[in-house]
């Protein structure tokens, strides 16, 4: 059974119709890439999955999005609990003004974890999970701002891992990084796949081809094509997809 299921999703920023009739399902422990030209609605759709667009005034949604079979826009859903289960990594690294340790421990603490030994253990596991442990194990008390951009982004991934979400949403997580850091993040996505379901927005075709199992192509608020990544890149069914992938527009 799929872990995320969107059915006939229409989304509006005020009068602006940003997403039009999106229906798609995503498999557990898979990596799904969203591609498409700027402004086509990739981030908007991604942010619907953890209800991050609730923060914006004047938005409206019709249709439904289910996570593990429950409609997350149902009135009975507790948004904070949902967000603890659906983690998010942002375009630019955005660590808190805290130590490395406290950045990771934050998610546990706000979710009511008090046990110090458990927190320490989770911090280490998360940093290992994000392939950052060896680089920071001796300076956990240092400010997160002292890390390089690439390290900060892996810290943000570790921060998301710490609360053990089922799904991790990534919005162009490597677009602000150098090629080496980008490669590290891509490796990381590959290993994380065995424990998490990952949805990643990317501008970079090679990246989508390298890391994802399935790819969705968005254009002007519509889902144009959604298929196995291999198929999408080798033999796209729609001409617009073909044009975008080969770089003829976007």
């Amino acid at each position: 059974m799929s872990i995320i299921k969107a059915s006939d999703v229409d989304f509006y920023y005020g009068d602006f119709h940003a997403l039009k009739g999106i229906s798609m399902e995503m498999e557990r422990n898979s990596v799904t890439a969203f591609i498409g030209p700027s402004g086509c609605g990739k981030s908007t759709f991604l942010r619907l999955i953890n209800r991050m667009n609730d923060l914006i005034d004047g938005t409206r949604l019709t249709g439904s999005i289910e996570v593990e079979g429950r409609n997350i826009y149902d009135k009975k859903i507790d948004v904070d609990t949902l967000r603890a289960e659906v983690g998010m990594v942002f375009q630019k690294p955005n660590p808190f003004a805290k130590s490395i340790f406290d950045n990771i421990a934050y998610g546990l603490r706000v979710n009511g974890v008090k046990d110090k030994a458990f927190i320490e253990q989770r911090v280490e596991e998360s940093l290992r999970g994000a392939a950052l442990w060896d680089e920071v194990k001796d300076k956990l008390k240092k400010s997160a701002f002292e890390l390089s951009g690439g390290q900060q982004q892996r810290l943000c991934i570790a921060r998301a891992l710490a609360v053990q979400p089922k799904i991790i949403l990534m919005d162009e997580p490597a677009s602000a990084l150098d090629p080496l850091s980008t490669a590290k993040i891509e490796d990381l996505i590959f290993t994380l796949k065995s424990d998490y379901t990952i949805v990643i927005v990317t501008h970079n075709m090679q990246q989508a081809a390298r890391v994802s199992d399935k790819t969705a192509f968005f254009y002007l608020g519509e889902l144009i094509e959604y298929d196995d990544t291999k198929k999408m890149f080798l033999s796209p069914q729609v001409e617009a997809t073909q044009n975008y992938i080969t770089g003829r527009f976007g």
Partner: peptide, 11 residues
């Protein structure tokens, strides 16, 4: 995005 990062962790 700093606020969003916190909210996204369930805070």
């Amino acid at each position: 995005t700093i606020r969003e990062a916190s909210l996204a962790l369930g805070a």
